[in-house]
Amino acid sequence: MTLELHAQGDQAMERLGAAIGEALNWRGSVWLEGDLGAGKTTLSRGLIRAAGHAGAVKSPTFTLVEPYELEQRSIYHFDLYRLADPEELEFLGIRDYFSDNSLCLIEWPAKGQGMLPQPDLIISITVDGDGRRLQIEGHGERGLAAGHRLHSTRGEATP
C-alpha cells in the first residue's frame, strides 16, 4: 500500500508525524528517506511530542540515536547520516532497540543496509514548492494497517 500526502509547513508536518505514531500504535519501525532539509526531523518531532515528550527534539546526527523513554513506550530516533559502515550498528547494539514495545524512527536507513530489520513504514519526503510531498509505503501487517488508518484520517494533509 502506498499513500501520497502533501504537508504545507512545519506544523502540518508535525501533525502528520503525530498521526503516523498513532496509526502505528506507537510501535514498529519507520524508515525516513529524503534529502537534507526535507523535513525528516520535523516529522519525527511531531511524532515524539504527540507520544508525550515535552522537551526538545533534536536530530541525533552526532549521537546516532536519541532515546525517548516515555511512560508506556520507548521511542528511538536514529540518524545514520554520519555512519561510515553498517557494521558499526552492531557495536551500537542496534538489535536491542527493536522490541514489541518500541518505535524506531530511522533517518538515512540506506546507510544501515543489511543491519536493520524490515520497516513497517517507509516514508519518502521531497520538497514540493513551499510544502512537502510524502510517499508512505506500508509493509507487513503492522505497516499495512497503519497505512489504512492514515488513509482514513488524513487530517490536514492532502493527497
Rank of each mutant, 00 (worst) to 15 (best):
1 M>T: 12
1 M>H: 13
5 L>K: 05
7 A>N: 12
7 A>V: 09
9 G>N: 07
10 D>G: 00
11 Q>P: 00
11 Q>K: 10
11 Q>M: 04
14 E>K: 14
15 R>I: 02
15 R>L: 09
15 R>C: 01
16 L>R: 04
16 L>G: 02
17 G>P: 11
17 G>A: 07
21 G>D: 04
22 E>L: 04
23 A>G: 03
23 A>Q: 02
23 A>K: 04
28 G>A: 07
29 S>R: 09
31 W>N: 08
35 D>P: 11
35 D>A: 15
36 L>R: 13
36 L>Y: 13
37 G>Q: 13
38 A>V: 09
38 A>S: 15
40 K>V: 02
43 L>V: 12
44 S>I: 10
48 I>K: 02
49 R>L: 14
50 A>H: 12
51 A>W: 10
52 G>N: 06
53 H>Y: 15
53 H>C: 05
54 A>W: 08
56 A>Q: 13
57 V>Y: 01
59 S>Q: 08
59 S>R: 10
60 P>Y: 03
61 T>W: 02
61 T>F: 09
65 V>Y: 03
68 Y>N: 08
70 L>K: 06
70 L>M: 11
71 E>T: 08
73 R>F: 01
73 R>N: 07
74 S>A: 13
74 S>P: 01
75 I>F: 03
76 Y>V: 06
77 H>I: 05
79 D>G: 13
82 R>E: 10
85 D>P: 03
86 P>H: 05
87 E>Q: 13
88 E>H: 07
90 E>S: 07
94 I>N: 00
94 I>M: 01
100 D>I: 00
100 D>G: 13
103 L>G: 02
103 L>M: 04
104 C>Y: 04
104 C>R: 01
106 I>A: 07
106 I>D: 08
110 A>G: 12
112 G>H: 03
113 Q>L: 08
113 Q>I: 06
117 P>S: 08
118 Q>G: 06
119 P>F: 01
119 P>D: 01
121 L>N: 10
121 L>F: 04
124 S>K: 15
126 T>E: 15
127 V>D: 09
127 V>R: 08
135 Q>A: 14
137 E>R: 12
140 G>L: 11
142 R>P: 01
144 L>H: 14
147 G>D: 00
147 G>P: 00
148 H>E: 14
152 S>V: 03
153 T>R: 15
155 G>I: 09
156 E>P: 05
156 E>N: 12
157 A>S: 14
158 T>K: 15
158 T>Q: 15
158 T>E: 12
158 T>N: 08
